[in-house]
Amino acid sequence: MIRKLIIGLAIVFIPLGIWYAYEYGRPLEVAFSDAIVGATTSSESEQAPKVVIVARVLSLQSDHDLLCSDTTGTEFRIEYTGSPNPHGFVSNKVYRFLGHVHDGAEPYFHATQWFE
């Protein structure tokens, strides 16, 4: 009985746990202004929540310092410190950046991953 009980519970709850982790491990896709709101409303002791911003590269100082605009047209700076893009970032191309906002007088987005 106990064997069947444990196996049955495992069959039900492990996929449920994975789904639950998926819900809590999925970064939201937001505009830069929403990311700032997320950063300012999180507790001081925590890093701002990780989010994805779909951004068009407007100009590049380097592959680590990009001026971008999000889907709402807001311009903002991205400091990219993740694995290098093997092809390099290209102006006027759209990328998805994962990272968090550094709040302050001049907020910027600190990205650690990028996706096409």
């Binding site: 982790a21 809590y24 491990g25 999925r26 970064p27 994805v52 998805r96 996706f115």
Partner: peptide
């Protein structure tokens, strides 16, 4: 997919 840690709420709720 984007490499993100699950939020701590996941552990708390479980």
């Amino acid at each position: 997919l984007p490499k993100v840690a699950v939020a701590t709420d996941f552990y708390n709720k479980v």
